[in-house]
């Protein structure tokens, strides 16, 4: 009996290691391509294409980016600020909402869930949204225009609802109520500590969302000092795309530095680098035993 279990466990582990390792390699390959391209001279890329190992090694692209580093450093500042503030604020609101929506004694929870979900189905399009942010909320050219639009998503709220629902047994809430704790105290003292893996997941997604955002910079920010980091990457690529798509008849010649192929890739590395470390940091909250779901069974 015991031996049999061990052998099946062994097989399972072998399968697990093989699949995970193979998957990891597949996921890693394109990254090597990006990093290698960022370290190749621009001329070699244009003449020979990409290679896993740089054919003509060169640090030029990075040198060019960091020659005048204030732009990139300022953009880091903006992105970090927006990510931290947005994630904290969003998490606070979404955990409260998720908690309330899963309370079985909250009569209208289904109606309100629908009220929130409905917004994923219907939208008015870009024009009215642009007017809302600029003409009514007056967020144009401010950090609010970067934080507000991504603060909450229906998906993350419903996900939070489900995490709390499975992590916090109803009995715990009920007994706390009998002890005379009010709903906010229950949320704050009991629910939050129990929902840590859920908090970590939702927080991670929200933070990623803020970090990867460039669109709201493109739409709402005119002041170069307030551009997000990702916007720099997109703008480099879009500037070349524009030059490629505009016909000779438009007669547009841009003075100023025209970004090169290797610079695009170097920018991609610079822009994604730091956030890669967020996930390993979050991982430590994905540990079994933080929950007391046992009571439920």
């Amino acid at each position: 009996m015991k031996i049999k279990e061990d052998s099946s466990t062994k097989w399972f582990r072998l399968l697990a290691y093989t699949v995970v390792l193979a998957g990891s390699i597949l996921c890693l390959l394109p990254f090597l391509l990006i990093i290698s391209a960022s370290l190749t001279s621009n001329e070699a890329i244009i003449r020979e294409g990409y290679n896993i190992i740089p054919s003509d090694f060169s640090f030029d692209a990075y040198k060019l980016i960091f020659l005048i580093p204030d732009d990139v450093i300022r953009a880091y500042g903006v992105t970090i600020f927006v990510t931290v503030v947005g994630t904290l604020l969003g998490l606070l609101l979404m955990t409260m909402a998720g908690y309330v929506l899963q309370r079985k004694d909250f009569k209208y929870r289904n109606f309100f869930s629908f009220f929130i979900y409905f917004t994923t189905l219907f939208g008015g399009g870009l024009v009215p949204y642009y007017m809302l942010i600029t003409n009514y909320l007056n967020f144009e050219n401010s950090m609010s225009a970067l934080i507000w639009p991504s603060l909450m998503t229906p998906f993350l709220i419903i996900l939070m609802r489900s995490f709390i629902n499975s992590a916090v047994p109803d009995e715990v809430v009920e007994s706390a109520k009998i002890d005379g704790a009010n709903d906010f105290v229950i949320y704050y003292r009991i629910v939050m500590p129990l929902a840590v893996p859920g908090l970590a997941t939702v927080g991670l997604f929200l933070a990623l969302h803020y970090w990867n955002d460039w669109f709201h910079s493109a739409l709402f920010i005119n002041d170069a000092a307030k551009y997000q980091l990702q916007f720099y990457l997109y703008n480099i690529i879009n500037t070349t795309n524009f030059l490629n798509s505009i016909g000779a008849g438009a007669g547009v010649v841009l003075s100023g530095p025209v970004p090169s192929e290797s610079m695009k890739m170097a920018m991609a590395v610079v822009v994604t680098g730091p956030i890669l470390f967020l996930y390993p940091f979050i991982q430590r909250y994905f540990v079994k035993g933080l929950t007391i779901g046992a009571v439920k069974g």
Binding site: L93, M96, A97, F115, T119, G124, L132, M152, N182, F184
Partner: peptide, 29 residues
């Protein structure tokens, strides 16, 4: 009975009302 719960949900509801329901008028375009 659940006024605290309502208060906790209120910011979220207002957010979606302003951020998502208002612009739906644009469907008329």
């Amino acid at each position: 009975k659940n006024r605290i719960l309502f208060l906790m949900l209120l910011p979220t509801l207002l957010y979606f009302l302003i951020n998502n329901y208002f612009p739906m008028i644009g469907i008329y375009y």
